[in-house]
């Protein structure tokens, strides 16, 4: 707990054949902070998450997580350092059960040999059960994950990240396509899990954003447009112009 800054993105740029999807972006995320990134389509929100988790390689700038430079690291190593990322469309293993989905995400047996000789200990079973309760799926542990509802699939993927206990959790539109009740439960879930970790969320649903965000970052055309508390950002004229006003 040396520095309050967990993630420092500085002057980050990525260009796809000359098109700069993220352009000189700097962003600082504190420990235990819930930050929401908003912005119109094509603002570079998902690309930002791709850059942090290593799916896309930066053309310039740096991403420091604790004191580690992430831009050169392999994807699975970034995960080992404590960065978890949820994709926009629920990415779960539909042919496996809920319990198997969670167990596969448990951070052990991650090498070929480790997975061949992996043993399911009571501690792991207990942890799977705990996480399942947290994501409201403890009744469905033996259900094939493909049979879950859309909202439950989103929770399951969040659970698969939680079981890895990441210090930074990145969620790409976690409530897209959810019912009102599901949104509320997701907001409650996010508040609970953000107690001891930082969360970076991309979301369009403004009520949900107000509900969870400590701070909001607005992106536009790959650049930082505004940053601050939701109420302040909403009053910002440039933000209203490009995004919220519509």
């Amino acid at each position: 707990m040396s520095s309050p800054i967990l993630l420092a993105v500085e002057d980050l740029t990525v260009s796809f054949d000359g098109f700069k999807a993220v352009d000189g972006l700097s962003l600082y995320l504190e420990r235990n902070e819930v930050r929401v990134v908003i912005g119109p389509n094509g603002a570079g929100k998902t690309t930002l998450l791709d850059l942090i988790c290593g799916k896309t390689r930066a053309t310039g700038g740096s991403i420091k997580f604790k004191d580690l430079e992430l831009t050169k690291m392999a994807e699975h190593q970034i995960v080992h350092k404590g960065v978890g990322r949820k994709f926009q469309t629920p990415s779960i293993y539909e042919n496996l059960t809920v319990a198997q989905n969670l167990e596969l995400s448990y951070p052990e047996g991650r090498t070929v040999m480790g997975s061949l000789f992996f043993r399911r200990t009571p501690a792991i079973q207990k942890r799977v059960q705990e996480i399942a309760e947290e994501i409201y799926l403890d009744e469905d542990l033996d259900k094939s994950a493909g049979l879950l509802s859309h909202g439950q699939k989103q929770w399951l993927e969040i659970g698969m990240l939680l079981i890895q206990d990441p210090e930074l959790l990145m969620l790409d539109e976690p409530v897209a396509g959810m019912s009102v009740v599901e949104r509320e439960r997701t907001a409650a879930l996010l508040r609970k899990i953000s107690n001891n970790r930082s969360v970076l969320v991309i979301e369009h649903d403004m009520d949900f954003v107000k509900d969870i965000a400590h701070k909001v970052t607005v992106l536009h055309q790959g650049k930082l447009l505004a940053e601050g508390k939701m109420e302040d950002v909403q009053k910002n004229e440039r933000v209203i112009e490009v995004y919220l006003g519509h």
Binding site: H76, Y93, R110, T111, V112, M160
Partner: peptide
């Protein structure tokens, strides 16, 4: 092999390769 955790990983990888990669596995080795 198929009934070990590795076997489940194979199925998982076939269906959602990125999710396996971003759960901390080196997919190429698998």
């Amino acid at each position: 092999i198929l009934n070990s955790r590795y076997g489940q990983l194979l199925i998982a990888m076939r269906d959602q390769e990125d999710r396996v990669r971003f759960s901390g596995y080196d997919v190429a080795n698998i």
